[in-house]
Design a protein around this nucleic acid. Sequence first.
DNA 1: TGAAATGTTGGGGCG
DNA 2: ACGCCCCAACATTTC
Length: 466
Amino acid sequence: MNIIWFRRDLRLADNQALASAVSAGECLPIYILDEAEETEISGAGKWWLHQSLDQLNKALDGTMHFFKSSAASIIPQVANEINAKAVYWNNCYEPSFVKRDKEIEEILQKSGVNCQRFEGAHLWKPGAIVKGDGTPYKIFGPYLKASIASGPPPEPLSPPHKLQLKKVTLSGEVHLNDLNLLPKIKWFGGMAARWEPGEAAAKKLLNDFVANRLSHYSKERNYPARDILSRLSPYLHYGELSPATLWHAVQSSRSTTADKGKFLSELTWRDFAYSLLYHFPETVTQSYNVRLQKLRWQYNKALLEKWQKGQTGFPIVDAGMRQMWQTGYMHNRVRMITASFLVKNLLMDWRIGAEWFMDCLVDADLAVNTMNWQWVAGTGLDAAPFFRVFNPVLQSKKYDPDGTYIKTYVPELAGLPKSALHEPWKAKATVLKAAGISLGKDYPLPCIDLQTSVKEALKAFEETKF
DNA sequence: TGAAATGTTGGGGCG
DNA sequence: ACGCCCCAACATTTC
């Protein structure tokens, strides 16, 4: 008997470890909520993970064995208990996984248990796409080029025809509910209303995206009110959908080369993020740009809370922060706007923002989140320059021109005409009155002055020169 | 996958 | 016909 260890690959289709384990005969599926890893999973992500594990367990006829402990002790223990010949798993490239998995592999090898490791979380695993001299790419453009030159990822595998799964009672195993992934306070209503975790739902959403939305992708992807993005990121994170499956579905679709290329380049950004995390793991906690490590960030609890709660007084920022809080998701364009606002207007450390996003997003992913925050902050690899500051009003007018997105998440402004929606503090008293809005009461006044705050940020930036 | 300031160009109105 | 100004449109520079 063999062990199939599920991790960030909560699917049956295109799962190399599962396919190999099944073809080797009877196997026993396990999932471990590693205590060390648990602290890194977002609040929203825990809700997602619970649903996803529930779905997977059902697809496995309820044979999944759950543990809440350290994987380094559980894996060898279970292997010993059932006298396993081998343990199968798919690799994951977060630094904590890499280190831990290596230790487990060594322990297993010492006790004569075979270790079968596979790929499947990326188009190209971190380390595979490197420059001619073996050093990692630091710029996305050349990375993308090299990735394309490496050819298409392998064709996805079908789900196994017949599972020979074993359910036994193992010492120390718990019920899914005992992983305590669901919060005691039921704040996840907004997420449950918008999301359906699990492999089957991922497949449905993928088909819908390719059939109905991909053909608008390159033109409309920046407009948060349009429902054009794939929304597949959480499924990719937990492995309910493999990147290779997504890649081939997009590539073989009837959309234009422009739309396919744009989308696949975005998908490649995900690989690039993992490549950066793999080669520069210290960037999770440190600005990559050494000069900017000296930047004097400000910390203001009251302002931070306004940002977190979507009460800054800037409608597009508030809409984004509330969308995330309510649904566990935020449109990509608005992620950039809200992040830029925290870093460049409130001059707060990007790590504070990164942490908040990690806790609120159902698609929270250490590699992607770290890269994107460092990009916005201008501290990272291949990042925007620090002085590239998004003006939330201009961005709002440009990407949410009729205010549909704002009105959805900031309903108290719904009565305003679109000419006043993007900067209500400039609206005439009569307009505000007609909309039944008293600024500072029904909706906050701007928490900072845009021009002054940008000047402050640039001043702090200048100071890092010395 | 900025924004604002500054510079350049060219068409058109006008004396 | 010509120079002059205005200004929109676009390009370049700077933060």
